[in-house]
C-alpha cells in the first residue's frame, strides 16, 4: 500500500515535469525511434542538443579491428536551417584498447517535404565521405502523422538505406589513386540501416512517446519522455532481449543572456 502511494506520488511528480518541448530522438540524436530516424520533428526553437546513448555489445555497431564491445554514442545535433540538420557523433567502445578518441561521424539530414504542405514527411540523410565510419548511412525516410484523438497520434515511418557508402580509398594502399568509390557497407561489417526499415511511433500529447521498429537487423521497442523542457530520457529494448537507454540535453539558443538584459539592475 505504501509502495503504491509512493508510486502514484512519484508518477504525479514526474508527470508534472513532463513537457512537450521536443520529440523522440534515436540513439544518434536525430529525430527518430530507437535506431531508425524519422523525417519529422516537433521542434520549434533554435537549439543545440547533446546526447549519450548506450548500446550493449550484442547490438553494437562499431567493428573496429573486427572486435565488438559495449558502446557509448556521444552526439551533438544542430539545425542551422529549418530544412537541414548537422549531426556529429563519436562512438566510444568501452573496452577496446587503442581506439583513440573513437569513431567520428558526421552526417546531414535534409528535411525535404513536410506533412502540412505535401501530406507527407520526407527527409534524406547523407553521410559525406569525410571518414570511414561504421554508422555511415545514406537513407531516405517518409512518414505521416495520423491523429487518433486529441491527445494521441500515431506515425508510421518507412525508409530505405543504401547498402553501399562512399569512401575514399587509402592512397598508400593502392598503386593507382582510385579516389572516391561506392563500396558495400558489409565489407567493413557495417550493417546499420542497410535496406528497408520501418516503425511505428505513438505520441501521447507530444509528451510521451512509444516506438516499435525494424531497423534492418532487429526489432526494437522504446519509450521516451521529455522533462523540464530540456532533458530527454529514453529506455530501449533491443531485439526484445537487451535493455538500454539514452539521455539527451538541449540548450536553447533563441533567448538573450539574462545578465545582458538585467545588467543594470
Amino acid at each position: 500500500m505504501r509502495f503504491a502511494t509512493k508510486f502514484i506520488f512519484f508518477s504525479l511528480v514526474l508527470f508534472g515535469c513532463l513537457s512537450n518541448a521536443y520529440g523522440q530522438i534515436n540513439f544518434l540524436g536525430k529525430p527518430g525511434l530507437v535506431r531508425i530516424p524519422k523525417p519529422s520533428s516537433i521542434d520549434k526553437r533554435d537549439n543545440i542538443q547533446f546526447q549519450v546513448a548506450y548500446l550493449p555489445v550484442e547490438y553494437a555497431i562499431n567493428n573496429f579491428m573486427n572486435r565488438k564491445s559495449n558502446e557509448f554514442f556521444y552526439s551533438v545535433q544542430l539545425r542551422p536551417l529549418s530544412w537541414v540538420s548537422v549531426n556529429f557523433v563519436i562512438t566510444r567502445p568501452t573496452d577496446i584498447p587503442r581506439i583513440g578518441i573513437g569513431d567520428r561521424h558526421l552526417d546531414l539530414q535534409f528535411f525535404i517535404l513536410n506533412q502540412k504542405k505535401y501530406g507527407i514527411n520526407l527527409s534524406a540523410i547523407l553521410s559525406p565521405p569525410l571518414a570511414a565510419s561504421f554508422i555511415d548511412h545514406n537513407s531516405i525516410v517518409i512518414s505521416r502523422n495520423i491523429a487518433i484523438s486529441n491527445s494521441i497520434s500515431v506515425e508510421p515511418v518507412l525508409g530505405y538505406g543504401l547498402e553501399v557508402h562512399l569512401q575514399e580509398l587509402p592512397k598508400k594502399a593502392n598503386i593507382y589513386d582510385m579516389g572516391y568509390q561506392w563500396i558495400a557497407k558489409s565489407e567493413r561489417g557495417n550493417y546499420y540501416l542497410s535496406g528497408f526499415f520501418g516503425g511505428l511511433q505513438v505520441n501521447l500529447e507530444d509528451k510521451v512517446f512509444l516506438a516499435a521498429e525494424y531497423d534492418t537487423q532487429y526489432i526494437n521497442v522504446g519509450a521516451s519522455a521529455i522533462i523540464f523542457k530540456k532533458i530527454g530520457l529514453q529506455v530501449n529494448y533491443f531485439d526484445l532481449k537487451a535493455l538500454s537507454g539514452q539521455i539527451s540535453y538541449r540548450v536553447y539558443l533563441d533567448k538573450s543572456l539574462k545578465r545582458n538584459m538585467k545588467a543594470y539592475e
Partner: peptide, 13 residues
C-alpha cells in the same frame, strides 16, 4: 565557411 548567428552564440562549419 558557413556561420550561423544566434543571440550570443556563433556556430561555424
Amino acid at each position: 565557411s558557413v556561420f550561423k548567428q544566434y543571440k550570443n552564440i556563433e556556430v561555424g562549419f
